[in-house]
C-alpha cells in the first residue's frame, strides 16, 4: 500500500451512490499495518516495563533479601534449562526468517515448512516453560503467592508466555492461509504477514530481557 498512485477513473468519481472511498493516499513510506504494529509494540514494551518497574522497586527497597531468593530459585531451576529454552526460542526467529525468504522466493514448500518449524519451536518453548512452573509448584513448593519475587517471576514469565501464545495463534493463522494458497507468493509479503513476523521477533527480544533480569542478574 505504499503511496498508491491516484488512479483517475472518471466513472469512479461520478458514481452517484458514493459507496466507496476516494483512491487512498499514503503520506508515509511504510504501510499502515507496519506503522501500526510498531506503535503497538511500543505499548507492549511499556506493559512489560510496568512489571519490571515494580520488580526493581521491590528488589531495591523490598524487605526480603534478594540474594536468599536468588539462591533458592537457582537451586529449584537449573540455569541450563533456561538457556536451552532461550536457544530454542531465539532459533525460531531464524526459522521465521527462512519462511519469509521462502515467501519472497515464491517457494510454498519452504514457507510452509519453516512456518511449521517456528510454531513447533515456539510450542516447545511454552512446554518447557510450563514444565518449569510445574517443577516449581509441585516439587519445590514455590508458587505465585510464595513471596514478592516469585510473584514477579510468575507474572513476567506468564505475561511473556501469553505473548508467545498469541504469536503462535498469529503464526498458525499465517500457516492456514499459506496452506490454503491465499498468498500471492514471490512478492513482498502483505502487511498482515509482516506484522505477525515483527511481533514474533519482538516476543523473542523481550525474552532476552526477561532472561537477563530474572534469571541472570
Amino acid at each position: 500500500m505504499t503511496a498508491t498512485p491516484v488512479t483517475h477513473d472518471p466513472a469512479d468519481v461520478h458514481h452517484d451512490d458514493h459507496d466507496h472511498p476516494p483512491p487512498s493516499h499514503s503520506s508515509s513510506r511504510h504501510p499502515w499495518g507496519i506503522i501500526g504494529i510498531y506503535t503497538f509494540i511500543i505499548s507492549e514494551i511499556a506493559l512489560f516495563g510496568s512489571f519490571f518497574m515494580a520488580y526493581f522497586i521491590i528488589r531495591v527497597i523490598g524487605a526480603v533479601d534478594y540474594a536468599e531468593w536468588q539462591e533458592a530459585f537457582a537451586q529449584a531451576i537449573p540455569l541450563e534449562i533456561a538457556l536451552i529454552n532461550t536457544a530454542i526460542l531465539l532459533s525460531s526467529s531464524i526459522w521465521i526468517w527462512f519462511a519469509e525468504r521462502g515467501f519472497k522466493q515464491g517457494n510454498k514448500r519452504a514457507l510452509v515448512f519453516w512456518l511449521s518449524m517456528t510454531i513447533l519451536f515456539g510450542s516447545v518453548f511454552l512446554g518447557i516453560q510450563i514444565y518449569e512452573y510445574a517443577e516449581l509448584v509441585t516439587h519445590k513448593d514455590i508458587g505465585p503467592s510464595s513471596n514478592a519475587f516469585s510473584s514477579v517471576f510468575f507474572m513476567i514469565t506468564g505475561l511473556h508466555g501469553s505473548h508467545v501464545l498469541v504469536g503462535l495463534i498469529l503464526l498458525g493463522m499465517l500457516l492456514v492461509r499459506a496452506v490454503k494458497g491465499r498468498y500471492e507468493l514471490g512478492t513482498h509479503p502483505p502487511q498482515g504477514f509482516m506484522a505477525s513476523v515483527i511481533y514474533w521477533h519482538f516476543v523473542d527480544v523481550v525474552w532476552i530481557v526477561v532472561l537477563t533480569t530474572l534469571y541472570l542478574l
Partner: peptide, 14 residues
Amino acid sequence: TQFFNPILGGDPLA
C-alpha cells in the same frame, strides 16, 4: 500474589 505485601518482600509504594 504478593506484589504489595511488605511481609513477603512486596512494596505498597511500587
